[in-house]
Nucleic acid binder design. Sequence first.
DNA 1: CGGCATCTTGAGCCCTGTCAATATGTGTGG
DNA 2: CCACACATATTGACAGGGCTCAAGATGCCG
Lengths: 197, 197
Amino acid sequence: MGPLTQGQVESMPISSFVNGQCIYSSGERAGQAYRVEFGAVRVYRVLANGRRQILAFHFGGNWFGLQNEDLHRSNAEAIGVTGVKSVSLHEDPLIWQGLLPAVLENFLSAQEHQLVIGRQSAVERVAAFLLEMSDRSGHSYRLELSMPRVDVADYLGLTIETVSRSLTKLKNKRIINLLGARGIEILEYRALQNLCL
Amino acid sequence: MGPLTQGQVESMPISSFVNGQCIYSSGERAGQAYRVEFGAVRVYRVLANGRRQILAFHFGGNWFGLQNEDLHRSNAEAIGVTGVKSVSLHEDPLIWQGLLPAVLENFLSAQEHQLVIGRQSAVERVAAFLLEMSDRSGHSYRLELSMPRVDVADYLGLTIETVSRSLTKLKNKRIINLLGARGIEILEYRALQNLCL
DNA sequence: CGGCATCTTGAGCCCTGTCAATATGTGTGG
DNA sequence: CCACACATATTGACAGGGCTCAAGATGCCG
């Protein structure tokens, strides 16, 4: 991803996390950039009343935790067994050059997601989510979601019940198939795309 | 903002735009970074069915249009009479160094906004919006919104009717006062903050 | 002062959240 | 390999917040 950081990152050891383990949390001192090696990561924020919004999911190769400020404003947790490499942002100011593409990518994803949660209905959001997951796992038609329904809901700004109902609707329309609790089979890729228009 | 770009930008001429005029639009060739000199800018995307989501508002000093890809994915329009300076991103690759803080700032704003449109009710969104506008105009208690209701609605993922009703609710609670169509007087700053928790 | 855009208010409905019960799946220990 | 227990997911009934459609009010500019 970042050409300049390539060597510096590759030489770092992998930190391993178990399911649900915190990688960093809000209020902590920042100063590291992280890259997922295996597994998955959720980055989220919580409102005072307990409502949670997942800002992004990160999978193998994705960078996260990129920020200038000294304190973290969000939390990052492992989803399942997860490996992460990290580099310090303070030591070498030039490190940012290599990370810029990653920052822009994260920024673009955030904007993309604004559109989904701002202007789409429940089924449309779920459809968009399935497409995103499919695309990020190499456009595969069969995939295992790495996160539970709660995470999907908090990512899409919905409740787990609505997510579940939306999935059922898509299943009844023969657009997808549900394989167990986490498995998804996409039967009509185009139909999903049409829902996101 | 960007120390390295300071000189290069200052020497650029100001391009002027009238209300509603397009600065760039989706599909166009990118390659410029823009900075608002006076006036305001809305950056938005439109879904195929016509639904619009405003991703961000930009005011004096704010950078926008920052992206790596060759094509724009969003539209930028002037709100009122607006002046903009721009620098080319291709000529000098080092230009990005100075722009990095601006990118991170835009990224952070996008995340902040995800929380608002993902997990807050109508009144809460409007309250958050008023606070944002107040903060960005120097924490003033009296302000003139530079954009019409439809822009506020498309920014917050609501309809103009709901925005209007939410403002009325805040007025009835003596938290704000409405001064004409665009004027806002904040009576209870803390009350607004409490709504956004 | 008149005309038009913008904003507000009202009535009704639908989508999604809430609360509650049931079902499914997973992992552990016998 | 099965039984049990717990976590996770689905389904149902109901209520409420926000959207839609429609009318009226306000403000702005010529």
